[in-house]
Design a binder for these strands. Structure first.
Length: 429
RNA sequence: GGAGAAGUCGCGUAGUUGGUCGAGCGCGCGCGACUGGAAAUCGCGUAACUACCAAACAUAGUUCGAGAGUUCGAAUCUCUCCUUCUCCGCCA
């Protein structure tokens, strides 16, 4: 969500930004919203004048009543009532226009950063840098669910019977590994100064609207029947939502938080064969990091945040690369975003395991989250989020990269304390 | 889930026959005076949003949990919802 004042004053920038994001169908909305806005402000002005009249008369009526001048008061009441219809019509127009403008502003994309590569879709994303040498073992690596099955670590059949497609039972060492990764990631972020947080896993509709775009909401969020509650798709939703309607003291910035939560996603749409198993599921668990900071600091935080992800994966000896999202692949709220992708020796390619985003002030504007500056002035902070690690998916990379021909899997040193000291897990006999 | 109480300006409170209440007081905070400096004291100031404006000020509008209603006029009356607290129930 961008500032309507900015749009009003810089329609060409907004339009060019829409073109850069290959959303030509939204171009007419710019002029449309400018016209509506003009109409809206005229309506406000007219309605304000009428309200001012009413207020003035009402005060006068009070005075007259006190002086016992009933007749004059009655006459004045009539004057006010006469203007009622006009005032109510204007007020109705006011709210209608305001709603229209709001709904348009909700779909106007955020202005992307100058550095974002222009491209229509994810095929135009740009590899920026690789970290670690991709390895290719001299034996065939099975599909990740097979590796897990050999370790007696997964039961997809039972999950299918109990919950349907898109769920999993993790068992034994694999389940423990899953928790170990989360615990390690949690401590990794705590060691970097982030505050650990366990947020609500269900949130109100208005918070959902504040943190994500409408299209994302439809495609992702599960709603609780009969209640104004949604299951979160990521703890970013509750963590950024935490600040709804809040005024943050400037001296408390930046807020650096790392949160754990299960994540629930509908995952509407067709997904390929490589997205079976635990790659794309309705429920998974994730350690997340979010930062609320001054606008001028957000790019520095962005750089720091994606590097944390790289560092974490490298500490588990998994090769990764940074892939910068191009304009067309950037969700509407985002200013800049990149994925960290892990190397899959089986597929001989990288696949997404983390997603780091700078949302600029878009979420802050929607949520009415503000910072009170030292000079007493209010401004909108910037919000950022990044995956620390989402274990079911990261386990794919983990197992493939640490697998031996006999089906055993090495446990990297940093995870051993969380695995009861085990150095390796081995297939059941 | 049931019964009761409450939700006011950063915090604590006043406000209960609707009008001079956008809101008093205390604390906190800011500025100033006093002082060698400080404490204490005294004085002044201290919500957000919107419109107008290049901007500031001024002006006008909106906001006393949220929404709707009654009324010329609502913090004050009515209704619905939400939240918190107390008690009970039910449980990890």
């Amino acid at each position: 969500m961008i500032d309507i004042r900015f749009l009003r004053e810089n329609p060409e920038i907004v339009k060019q930004n829409i073109r850069n994001k290959f959303q030509e169908q939204k171009l007419p909305l710019v002029d449309e919203v400018i016209a509506l806005d003009e109409e809206y402000r005229a309506a406000i002005k007219a309605a304000n004048d009428l309200r001012a009249d009413r207020n003035r008369y009402s005060k006068e009526i009070g005075n007259l009543m006190r002086q016992g001048k009933k007749d004059e008061a009655e006459e004045m009441k009539k004057k006010v009532t006469d203007a009622d219809a006009q005032r109510e019509a204007l007020e109705k127009k006011e709210t209608e226009l305001s709603e229209k403008i709001h709904s348009i502003m909700m779909v106007i994309p955020n202005i992307i950063d100058k550095s974002v590569p222009i491209g229509p879709d994810d095929s135009a994303n740009v590899e920026v840098e690789r970290f670690g040498e991709p390895r290719t073992p001299d034996f065939d690596i099975p599909y990740h669910t097979e590796i897990m099955e050999k370790l007696n670590g997964i039961d997809m059949d039972a999950a299918g019977r109990v919950s349907g497609n898109g769920f999993y039972y993790l068992m034994g060492d694999v389940a423990r590994l899953h928790e170990a990764v989360l615990a390690y990631a949690r401590d990794f972020m705590i060691d970097r100064g982030f505050t650990f947080c366990i947020p609500p896993f269900m949130i109100h509709g208005n918070v959902v609207e504040g943190v994500m775009s409408q299209t994302d909401m439809d495609a992702m969020m599960y709603k609780i029947e009969g209640e104004d509650l949604y299951l979160i798709g990521t703890s970013e939703h509750s963590m950024i939502g935490k600040y709804i309607d809040q005024i943050i003291p400037e001296e408390s910035l930046p807020h650096t938080l790392t949160s754990y939560s299960p994540c629930f996603r509908k995952e509407k749409g067709a997904h390929g064969i490589e997205e079976r198993g635990v790659y794309r599921i309705h429920q998974f668990e994730k350690q997340e990091m979010i930062v609320i900071c001054k606008p001028e600091d957000s790019m520095a935080w962005y750089e720091k945040m994606w590097k944390y992800s790289v560092e974490l994966f490298r500490s588990l000896d998994i090769p990764v690369r940074q892939l910068e999202c191009c304009s067309g692949d950037l969700a509407d709220l985002k200013v800049k975003s990149c994925d960290i992708e892990a190397w899959s020796p089986r597929q001989q390619k990288y696949f997404e395991v983390c997603s780091c985003s700078n949302m600029g002030d878009a979420q802050a504007r929607r949520l009415k989250m503000r910072v009170k500056g030292a000079d007493g002035k209010m401004y909108l902070p910037h919000t950022l989020n990044n995956t620390v690690v989402a274990p079911p998916r990261m386990l794919i990379a983990f197992l493939e990269n640490n697998l031996h021909a006999d089906g055993s899997v090495d446990i990297p040193e940093v995870l051993r304390p969380y695995m009861g000291g085990k150095t390796v897990i081995t297939p059941a006999k």
